[in-house]
Nucleic acid binder design. Sequence first.
DNA 1: ATATCTGCCTGCTCGC
DNA 2: TGCGAGCAGGCAGATA
Length: 272
Amino acid sequence: MPELPEVETIVRMLRTQLVGQRVVSWPRCVATSVAAEFERELAGREILDVRRRGKFVVIPLSGDKFCLVHLRMTGRLIIQDSTLTEACISDPHVHALFHFASGRILCFRDTRKFGRLYLVDDPAEVVGDLGPEPLAEDFTSQHLYELLRSHRKRLKPLLADQRLLAGLGNIYIDEALWEAKIHPLRLGHTLSMEETERLHAAIRGVLSRAIENLGTTLRDYRTPLGVAGGNQETLVVYGRQGQPCPRCGTPIRREVIGGRGTWYCPSCQAGD
DNA sequence: ATATCTGCCTGCTCGC
DNA sequence: TGCGAGCAGGCAGATA
């Protein structure tokens, strides 16, 4: 499932491949009037940049429009040679296809159809409510401290709330909490400054490392050129119930918190 | 304000 | 072997 590092990896590759390209057509999308509108609106526009905001891909287009993509669980953006256009169109999971004058295509493929495409005048219509970027230079531990104190929520659902902090998902929350040695059920406002500094460093460290490794591939995620990420090798707790904590040897525990599978070390991360 | 539940989806795993 | 049940989870929306 693409979280911040996966989207960042995708955005970097798309940027090198697509900036300056012109959308020729949009031959296929879901059969709604909205899709027809998409096709009409996109044709002829040039891709000016490819950026990321939280887990969104943000594509500024010529003519003051923005295309935004959220991959949710299984969404993928794939760059291919147009010789494969027919194969893409006959793929039942391909829901949209950008054609470019260069002869390449960009496929939006999503087996579970949770992903979303947007075409808007202002990105704020879609991402206006997102919290700060955890990797931004000006996102300090003091900011995180204030953010944690502003809500009486448990850390797991708090860190997953995109309105409070943008980009974290199930995997990196669990990994960051393990690294910071903090229990996922702790109430955010009970963290000391020292604990907050540990969490701040852990979040940024976990995300930065994942970007260096081109993202975490557990099943579906691939870069736009079809390559799996390598960060799954570095995961310590996510999906590893019963396996020994590499820090203390205690078996990793799985618990459902806020409706999500949550993995943590009951010894290192004691005290909820 | 926060927690909990449902729906959206499909592929995969598990148990019979 | 085959099949149905249950599960996974980001997010929106409803409800407690």
